[in-house]
Design a protein around this nucleic acid. Structure first.
Ligand SMILES: [Zn+2]
Ligand SMILES: [Zn+2]
Ligand SMILES: [Zn+2]
Ligand SMILES: [Zn+2]
Lengths: 130, 130
DNA sequence: TAGCATTATGTTATAAAGTAACACTTCACA
DNA sequence: TGTGAAGTGTTACTTTATAACATAATGCTA
């Protein structure tokens, strides 16, 4: 919340936005070491946690990596398409699909709170170059 | 493929089947150290990789952990319900849902190959005890 | 069956990812 | 200005995972 912290989060968000694909926390760390020589892992992880909590960043679970949000806060409905060729990650919202998924797990009395929907494959440009 | 390896895989699968919830690779490792004092991480990771490739085990991406397959080989259509209360992971197949998801990502020319669908929340018994 | 190539497996050592615990800073409010 | 709550940073460490190489099993050739 303070200036220092918010600035760190803004820098990390900028780094993630510039990136082509997802970045690991340590990718981010090494990138920041140019401007912040003494930065340590927890600083990055703290900032990523704060950014994730406010929906500005998502962790890509199946890549152990992070992306800047591309869906402007509707991240609870997000589907990630992960290209295993070029590493790009596209985020799109799919309210209907998430609703169906919730309904499906609720059939057994399960109470859903957070959805992880990640699809690996090839993006259109990688699959045409295959 | 050889006897030694297949036996290791069978043991690991048995350990995972006995477990209540998902186990980390190191949980499995420590469990096996009782019977195999000199076992090392790559042995476990190799076996888990082989078991995963043949669909007998799944990695729960959002838990960095592993479960024995509960769906008998139809794992490409699986949805995991992960209880954050008691740690149980239930696997159910949802062909229709996966088909819809594939259709959704294909709208942008993406070619899906592997689906990760994990829902966090509370199982029926944990949510009634809440 | 012996010799050799091929593949699978195990071991050592190390890298990558993540976090606990505590010290420090900031800022609101008395 | 003090005091405390909240947030942030640092040190040191744990957990997760893999590269590289050594070893062992398998199956083919002769
Ligand atoms: Zn988003
Ligand atoms: Zn691509
Ligand atoms: Zn399965
Ligand atoms: Zn539960």
């Amino acid at each position: 919340m303070t200036k220092r912290g918010e600035q760190m989060r803004a820098e990390i968000l900028a780094v993630l936005r510039e990136a082509d694909g997802a970045m690991s926390a340590y990718d981010v760390l090494h990138r920041l070491q140019a401007s912040h020589p003494k930065i340590a892992p927890p600083t990055v992880y703290n900032a990523l946690a704060a950014l994730t909590k406010t929906g500005r960043v998502h962790r890509v679970e199946s890549l152990k990596a992070y992306i800047a949000c591309q869906c402007d806060g509707t991240h609870k409905l997000a589907v990630l398409s992960i290209c295993d060729g070029c590493g790009t990650v596209e985020e799109r919202t799919a309210p209907r699909l998430v609703e169906n998924l919730s309904g499906f797990v609720e059939e057994t009395g399960f109470m859903p709170q957070r959805h992880v929907i990640e699809v690996h494959g090839l993006c259109s440009s990688c699959s045409s170059n295959a």
